[in-house]
Amino acid sequence: MTRLQSIALTAAAALVAGATLLAAGTSDRPAAPTPPPADSPTRMLTTPAAQGEPLIRRLPVLADQEQVCLASLKARAERRAYDGAPPVIPHDVESFTHTKSCLDCHGAGFKMGAQVARAMPHPYLAACEQCHVTAEAPLAFAARAAGPSLPSSTFEGRFRTGPSTRAWAEAPPTMPHGTLMRTNCLACHGRLGWAGLQTSHPERANCIQCHVSQSGQPEGLSTRGDAIGGPAQNSRNLYR
């Protein structure tokens, strides 16, 4: 079992409605089970997220659900350098005459046959191609580049986005990721969202009413300098 599978299972466990999670430290907590072998598909479901963390046991989920979720997370990760990076565009764009064309499909989301164009998870920003580049060169002649390309970076992006947790069995799961540029939850979790990650209740519009950010990671991250504080200030607002 790969680490990739692990996260998929973990996420699946957190997302599947009705999965029972028991909070650590409660008196009726069952004894820790014997860890399954390393290659067992249920390993992550019964292993604490990390040593020393409160134990949150997760029950096995249906095998097909796992596979669906796994495939979705893998597809999602393959389009990004790290969790939080803008995904690359998996199709040609040069035939579109204007970046406004992106909105035709990605504004509200769009499905035709098996093809899905997901809605933007972030508020409307006019210059799509500022952040999103095509996965493959738009140029018909790319294959005929003169000589070998420069060697690729060995940058390893951080993809850890879970697991989410629940305080008790019926509690709404926490969000296992931040919300920077991800304020339209339904882009991924709605009906046109990723298989295995879709919500059971898309009719409820205000997601963050019940689902809170788990990590407490503030989106405006702090630096060493912020910790120091200091006398710096921006100038007062002096617009006429």
Binding site: L4, A8, K74, E78, F159, G162
Partner: peptide
Amino acid sequence: MARGDVSLDV
């Protein structure tokens, strides 16, 4: 990164 295996580190 762009294609092929990615490492999802949990």
